[in-house]
Design a protein around this nucleic acid. Structure first.
Lengths: 238, 238
DNA sequence: CAGTGGTCTAGACCACTAT
DNA sequence: TAGTGGTCTAGACCACTGT
């Protein structure tokens, strides 16, 4: 659809397939604009995506240097669901739905999120098995006035795909907070925690395109299986 | 210098000072371009920065909605140093330099980073005190063929400011990895770990604008004081 | 329908890097 | 000095939102 996105995908593919060698320079923006028969600004939009993703580094007066993509293996940042993440990395996984019912939002949560304490939520608890072991417990709260229900086969797979493709809801952005908390009795009961005293908790508030908050999630990870990787750029001048 | 950056800063200030109310719409891009006497594309670059920072949400056909910035208190992501972070949040802090000497790169690190095992590095160990307690230990390795030495007063303050302002080196990007590891004897000796069995470790590979790797850092955090917040956008279509 | 943001263009000038 | 990326413009057309 978009020219710049297609060009981004094409260049990315060529970098991943080593058609453009690590450390070498990409063709100049002028050359690329002639090759793809588009204006230079359109090329620059494609390059901006490569830059953001850690595929290239630009230098004024010099060119666009191809980075070693293997070095940035699994940049697992951004807003992506468990199902999408596992699928993209081709890791065998299984989801067990422990709970899926309608209830009033818990008091602590209504207070934290500053929403009406009488609002109804769909409360989900799902265990994530990787290589046969339960290493993640996800506790989701979805506002019932936005999402009527989650069919159980959806809960076992991708909720995000269901919301986006079936309900036409567009997920836009999230605030994510990473902390370490003492393991609860529930953590010990549902996960194989061994002697661990703590779990890593990723708390997410997820919003739709129209800025409505529709989901709060606590993803509770066993310490030794938690890993988060991100590619970050330095923002000069604030 | 840049028009779009100045406009970004101006709009951001107005959002932070509630001159544009949360939930309301920003003036249209056309209106803004007339107000600032610039082209629409320049306005769009400014808005792209606001979008990335979680200040607004755009909607085609509608406008740019101002988000509740208080809800995204401390988006502590990106590539920022301890000193910059603490200063920006006005938290009283103190750095104690435990080690600052030239040595050959440790074997495990040369292997991980795939660099010559004979290269020399400046090896730093610094303790970070917050509210009187040592809660973070930073272990830095800076390549000596890029950085000759780190004066001790610099190690106590901002290394990044020294590199950028004194040495003229431009820090560009980093790969950051978050994991939880068992606490070492050294962790227990240097930090107030109490009964903790683990620490959160943030491993960073930091690169310059010319794509040279110049720093590897392990930032070791006490579990109960670790917190990482990020604002993430959903990237539709891969 | 008018107004909004999303994409794209062709051209200009500037700042930086090489040689 | 020639070639690169960085910024900016004025205009065009499209897709989407509201009334």
């Amino acid at each position: 659809m978009n020219k710049f996105f297609d060009i981004y995908m094409d260049l990315r593919k060529k970098i991943e397939h080593a058609e453009f060698a690590t450390g070498s320079l990409l063709p100049s923006e002028k050359t690329l604009s002639e090759h793809y028969h588009v204006s230079r600004e359109t090329i620059r939009k494609a390059l901006a995506l490569l830059l953001e993703g850690g595929y290239i580094q630009k230098k004024q007066g010099k060119g666009s240097i191809v980075l070693d993509i293997r070095r940035f293996n699994f940049p697992v940042s951004g807003l992506i669901s468990f199902k999408e993440l596992q699928d993209s990395q081709q890791i065998p996984n299984e989801t067990i739905v422990i709970k899926n019912k309608l209830e009033t939002i818990p008091d602590f949560l209504a207070e934290d999120l500053k929403v009406d304490p009488n609002r109804k939520v769909i409360s989900l608890i799902r265990l994530r098995k990787i290589a046969g072991e339960v290493v993640i417990m996800d506790k989701d709260y979805l506002f019932n006035d936005i999402i009527e229900q989650i069919p159980s086969d959806v809960a076992e797979n991708s909720i995000y795909a269901y919301l986006e493709n079936e309900l036409g809801l567009n997920i836009a952005y999230a605030k994510k907070e990473f902390v370490v908390e003492p393991a609860t009795r529930e953590d010990h009961k549902l996960m194989n925690l061994k002697d661990d005293t703590h779990v890593v908790v990723v708390k997410s508030e997820v919003y739709l395109e129209d800025t409505r908050l529709f989901q709060y999630t606590e993803s509770r990870h066993r310490l030794d299986r938690f890993r988060f990787v991100e590619f970050a750029r330095r923002k000069h001048s604030l």
